[in-house]
C-alpha cells in the first residue's frame, strides 16, 4: 500500500529476501548442511552423511540431551509455579507495593547470566548451603534466569483477563479456591503454556550461567556443543545444535497447538 508500482515492489522484495536470507535463513541452512556434511573443504560439502547424528546418539552427547531436557523441564516447571503464584498474589497488593515487587521479579532477566552463575558459586560453595558441584545448582541457575519470563507472561495474561469472569464466578457462589482452579487458571492456560514453552526454550539454550556452575556429570547441550567446537569437532557440534533447534521448535510448535486447541482460537 506504500509502494504502488509493481517494479518498485519487486525491488523491495528482492532487497528483503537478501537481508532475510543472509541474516536468518543462511545460518539455519548452513548449520543443517554442516551437520550432514561428510567433508567440507570447498564451497559446498563433498558429500552428505548422517554419521554425525549417529555418533552423537551413541556418544556422551546423548547424556547432554538428557541433562538439558531434565534441567529445562524442572526449572521451567518450578518457574511456572513460582511465577504464577507471584503474579496472582501480587494482584492483591496495593499499587505501590505491586510496582516495586513486580520490578524486583523482573530484575533477574536484566543481570548478565555469568554474574548469576558467579553469585551462586559465591553463595553456595560453603556449608550450610553447599550446592556447588551438584545438579541442583544448575537447576537453580536456570530457574533464576527464566523466572522473570514466566512471571512476565503470567502477569501479562492476568492483566488482560477481564475481572468480569472472576466476579461472575464469585457471585454464583464460587469460593476463592474453586474460582482459581476452575476459572482463573483455565483462562490463563494459554499464557501459562506460552510461559512454559519460552522458559523451556531459554533453558535449553542457556550457556553463561551453566558454564560457571555445571558439575562434571551434568553437561547440558550448549556446554557440550561449545566443548565440541572448541576441540575443532564442529560437524558434531552442528549436529548437536540441530538437535537442540529441532527440540526447541517442536516444543514451541507443539505447545502452540495445544493452546490453540484448548482455547479454540
Amino acid at each position: 500500500m506504500l509502494v504502488w508500482s509493481r517494479s518498485g515492489r519487486l525491488v523491495i522484495w528482492v532487497f528483503f529476501a537478501l537481508i532475510f536470507g543472509v541474516l536468518f535463513l543462511a545460518p539455519l541452512a548452513v548449520i543443517l548442511l554442516s551437520s550432514l556434511a561428510d567433508q567440507w573443504n570447498g564451497v559446498l560439502p563433498s558429500g552428505l552423511t548422517t554419521e554425525h547424528y549417529t555418533d552423537v546418539a551413541r556418544g556422551a552427547a546423548w547424556n547432554s540431551v538428557k541433562a538439558s531436557f531434565i534441567t529445562g523441564f524442572l526449572a521451567s516447571a518450578l518457574a511456572l509455579v513460582s511465577g504464577t503464584w507471584a503474579a496472582l498474589s501480587l494482584r492483591l497488593q496495593g499499587a505501590a507495593l505491586k510496582r516495586l515487587l513486580g520490578l524486583l521479579f523482573f530484575i533477574p532477566s536484566a543481570v548478565p547470566s555469568v554474574s548469576v552463575g558467579l553469585g551462586l558459586l559465591v553463595a553456595f560453595s560453603h556449608p550450610p548451603l553447599l550446592l556447588n558441584g551438584t545438579i541442583a545448582i544448575v537447576m537453580i541457575a536456570h530457574f533464576v534466569l527464566i523466572s522473570a519470563f514466566t512471571f512476565g507472561n503470567v502477569s501479562a495474561g492476568l492483566a488482560r483477563l477481564s475481572p468480569d469472569f472472576e466476579q461472575v464466578a464469585s457471585s454464583l457462589g464460587a469460593r476463592p479456591a474453586y474460582r482459581l482452579w476452575h476459572v482463573t487458571l483455565p483462562l490463563l492456560a494459554p499464557y501459562l503454556v506460552a510461559a512454559f514453552g519460552l522458559s523451556f526454550a531459554l533453558s535449553m539454550g542457556e550457556l553463561g550461567a551453566t558454564v560457571m556452575v555445571y558439575p562434571p556429570g551434568w553437561v547440558t547441550l550448549p556446554v557440550s556443543i561449545f566443548s565440541l567446537t572448541d576441540r575443532g569437532d564442529i560437524f558434531a557440534g552442528a549436529a548437536l545444535t540441530m538437535i537442540l533447534v529441532a527440540a526447541t521448535l517442536i516444543l514451541l510448535l507443539g505447545l502452540e497447538r495445544i493452546t490453540a486447541r484448548a482455547t479454540g482460537s
Binding site: 468480569d164 469472569f165 466476579q167
Partner: peptide, 20 residues
C-alpha cells in the same frame, strides 16, 4: 459477606461466559 455467600445471580454487559 463475601460475594460467594450472598446467593445472587449476575449478568454483565459482555456476558463473561467462561470460554473454556
Amino acid at each position: 459477606l463475601p460475594p460467594y455467600e450472598r446467593g445472587l445471580g449476575m449478568v454483565v454487559q459482555n456476558y463473561a461466559l467462561f470460554p473454556h
